[in-house]
């Protein structure tokens, strides 16, 4: 049932470049207005019940790099870092969970139909 399996490397690299550009450059142009939840909280008077996160002083808190004074550079570096960290964690997790192309011997029931 499978069409010829095309490689995904080129697509993944191109997609990663887009993500890096969005996070590193595009985020300069993001709106800095409060989001829907913050705005509703302010409007209805419960915004003050929010407490600072325990990591509010972390070096990348609020999508800026501590010590980098240029706002665009700081936000861009934070965004690029975040993209790479998410890629590593999510990609690593899904690579660990994936089915190997050669069926693993301990899971004979996972053989796909139509391979024989």
């Amino acid at each position: 049932m499978s069409s010829p399996r095309r490689r995904t490397t080129g697509f993944v690299l191109a997609g990663l470049l887009v993500a890096l550009l969005v996070a590193g450059v595009g985020s300069w142009y993001a709106s800095s207005s409060p989001d829907g939840l913050e705005s509703a909280a302010e409007q209805h008077g419960f915004a003050e019940t929010a407490r600072d996160s325990a990591v509010a002083d972390s070096p990348l808190a609020d999508y800026g790099v501590a010590g980098v004074s240029d706002g665009r550079l700081s936000g861009g570096l934070a965004g690029v870092t975040g993209v790479l960290v998410v890629l590593a964690l999510a990609g690593g997790l899904t690579l660990v969970l994936r089915r190997r192309t050669a069926p693993a011997p301990e899971t004979p029931d996972s053989l796909p139909a139509g391979q024989g």
Binding site: A19, A23, A30, G82, G92, T94, R99
Partner: peptide
């Protein structure tokens, strides 16, 4: 998840993170 979809999942997560920055 298989050999092909696992890298796609990593990319998709990274892409969602990036686009979530675009308020």
């Amino acid at each position: 998840l298989d050999e092909r979809t696992a890298p796609m999942a990593g990319l998709t997560a990274a892409f969602v993170f990036a686009v979530q920055m675009m308020n």
